[in-house]
Structures are given as C-alpha cells and as structure tokens.
C-alpha cells in the first residue's frame, strides 16, 4: 500500500490535533489552553481540507480560530483569569474518580470502533465538494433552515445582549 501526500498530511495533522487538544483540555492556565486549542483547530482545518471540503476548512479557520478563540481570550482577559489555576479538582489519593470518565470514554470509543469495523470494507470513494456545491445546497434546498439558523443566532444574541447589559438602576452586579 502506498501512501500519498494526502495520507501523510491527514495522519500528521490528525495526530497533531489530537495532541494539541489533549494539551488544551489539560492545561491549568486558560491562555495556554486556548493557544493549544488554536493549534488543534488549525490541524483540524487541514484535515478537513484534505477530506475535500475547502470551504468548510476555511470556515473552520475563520470562525473557530478567528472568532471563537478570540472571544474566549477576551473573556479571559476581562476576568483577569490568567493567573487563576483551577485544577481538575480531584484531591490527591482520590484519583479513582478520574478513572470513571476514563473508563466511560474508552468504552464509548470501543463501542463505536466495534460498530465501525462492522461490515464495511475499505472504501476509497473520495469526493471533493467545492464551495459552489455547498452554496447551491445552502441557498436553494436549505433556504428555510438557513433562515431558521438566523433565528438561532438571534436567540443567542438576545440572551447575550440582555445578560451583558449593565443594569440601569441596580448598578453593576
């Protein structure tokens, strides 16, 4: 079996994003965690690109790395959290509790792995779906869900707007 350039990129980027995600969720300092998260997102974007979805890959970079992480960083700065180091909250000697989610997650992976290995042979179908195909799908077939997606954002906006506003008479809370 020969490995193509795509395979190499996929496995490399995939491994990279797994490592950086692991780092992201285990850091104690939120800023480092976010930096790792950005790395992981870039890795995933590369994977998505390799999988033949260039539009989604660019969105991944723009929205996740650009917007989501920046928003996170803003909040961390506003809360002045960088110095706060909250750990996993498990006291020494009671790490048994950590084993529970570990076992749980491993068993989920195993279950789905069993499912994956089911009856599927190795398929090598490979489709590149460019931005124009996605755009057509979005704006023709899925026009109603797209409009509803705007409602979803509106709901979030209204809530965030109301909550973030300073209380007029009660002062800051």
């Amino acid at each position: 079996m020969t490995y193509s350039m795509f395979d190499v990129v996929f496995y490399g980027a995939g491994a990279f994003s797994v490592v950086t995600t692991t780092l992201a969720i285990t850091r104690t300092n939120p800023v480092y965690a976010l930096l790792n998260f950005v790395m992981s997102i870039l890795g995933i974007a590369l994977v998505i690109f390799v999988l033949g979805a260039p539009f989604a890959a660019s969105l991944e970079v723009i929205v996740y790395a650009g917007a989501v992480v920046v928003l996170f960083l803003f909040v961390v700065m506003m809360l002045n959290l960088a110095h706060l180091k909250t750990d996993f909250g498990v006291k020494r000697g009671r790490s048994v509790r950590l084993a529970v989610p570990g076992v749980l997650v491993i068993s989920i992976i195993i279950e789905i792995g069993i499912a994956f290995s089911g009856r599927f042979g190795k398929e090598t179908t490979y489709h590149i779906i460019g931005p124009s195909a996605v755009g057509r799908q979005l704006l023709v077939a899925d026009i109603i869900p797209i409009e509803l997606g705007s409602m979803l954002l509106l709901a979030a906006l209204l809530g965030a707007f109301h909550l973030a506003r300073l209380s007029p008479e009660r002062g800051r809370q």
Binding site: A155, A156, G159, H162
Partner: peptide
C-alpha cells in the same frame, strides 16, 4: 438548538 438558546436567555 434555537429553542435551547432561547430558553437559556429566558
């Protein structure tokens, strides 16, 4: 999800 986000606001 629209429902959920609206409910969080509520």
């Amino acid at each position: 999800e629209t429902l959920t986000l609206a409910m969080i606001g509520m």
